[in-house]
């Protein structure tokens, strides 16, 4: 089977993010970038399914030349080929979903796996738009519930299981208060939650092999997609600094303050 996965370039969650003084964005100098962690989980899941069922994993990223770093990372993990949608400038979730739709129509995968959201703007919309516009079934927040190392977890069936006839996929989803299992007909769109798997490392042999794997370049105009954003970010601001706590003399005062000031009881 053919699986399309995404690899968005995002700020390294370990770097310190600063908002520009004028609120138009974040300070990008000196920042490190990574593949969106949820997308990395998608790449891993794609590779595991292909290892079991055969086929190939195609990884796609949208952005300037710099996204090659993330594409190469996915290729080093084991993806077979990459598609680079060469676009710089603002792009909203509908623009991304529109571009991905065209890539999907071109590549014709059996399954699309994306991160449930990217950790930079946390929209959590692209997978849903994409499934809707393709007219495909969707299963969001594919997940597992326990620690990866527990015996229980090792013995459990994977959260993503493709049917024997390659026509369906059964997905365990993380929902409020538990797990839900859904079944979709293929082709389908699946988005990954944090606890689906632990992505493998890009090994050194993998990194060397990735050098010779193909990256196909596409441009939005060539795909016939108008990516003019319908959504504009008007202002960014840092969350307010945490205020110092206060000390109360006794429990009675604490209860009183929780009632009248914090209004939590």
């Amino acid at each position: 089977m053919k699986i399309l996965v995404t690899a968005k370039r995002v700020e390294d969650p370990e770097s310190k993010i600063k908002v520009k003084p004028d609120g138009t964005g974040i300070v990008q100098e000196g920042l490190k970038y990574k593949i969106n962690p949820f997308d990395e989980i998608a790449v891993e899941e794609g590779l595991r399914l292909v290892a079991k069922h055969g086929g190939e994993v195609v990884v796609v990223s949208i952005g300037g030349k710099e996204v090659h770093e993330q594409l190469r990372h996915a290729l080093a993990m084991g993806a077979h080929k990459a598609v680079w949608v060469n676009h710089t400038g603002p792009l909203d979730q509908m623009g991304v979903a529109g571009l991905l739709q065209k890539v999907v129509e071109k590549e014709k995968p059996d399954l699309v796996i994306l991160g449930k959201q990217s950790i930079d703007d946390d929209q959590n919309q692209v997978g849903q738009y994409l499934a809707e516009w393709l007219g495909w079934g969707q299963a969001t927040f594919a997940s597992k519930a326990e620690s990866f190392d527990s015996e229980n977890e090792k013995n459990k069936v994977p959260a993503l299981v493709v049917g024997a006839d390659n026509k369906t996929v059964r997905v365990v989803r993380e929902v409020d208060g538990g797990l839900a299992t859904v079944e979709c007909q293929l082709p389908a769109v699946v988005t990954t939650d944090l606890r689906l798997n632990q992505p493998r490392y890009a090994s050194l042999p993998g990194i060397m092999k990735a050098k010779s794997k193909p990256i196909e370049e596409l441009i939005p105009a060539g795909l016939g997609v108008d990516v003019t954003p319908k959504l504009t970010v008007t202002k960014m601001s840092a969350p307010p600094a945490r205020k110092a706590g206060i000390k109360v003399p006794d429990v009675a005062t604490l209860v009183e303050k929780l009632k009248t000031e914090a209004k939590v009881i």
């Binding site: 090659h68 770093e69 190469r72 990372h73 080093a76 490392y201 890009a202 090994s203 050194l204 990194i207 060397m208 990735a210 050098k211």
Partner: peptide, 10 residues
């Protein structure tokens, strides 16, 4: 190079 940064990262 890109490869050097990738192997450093790994």
């Amino acid at each position: 190079t890109d490869e050097q940064r990738a192997l450093q990262e790994t």
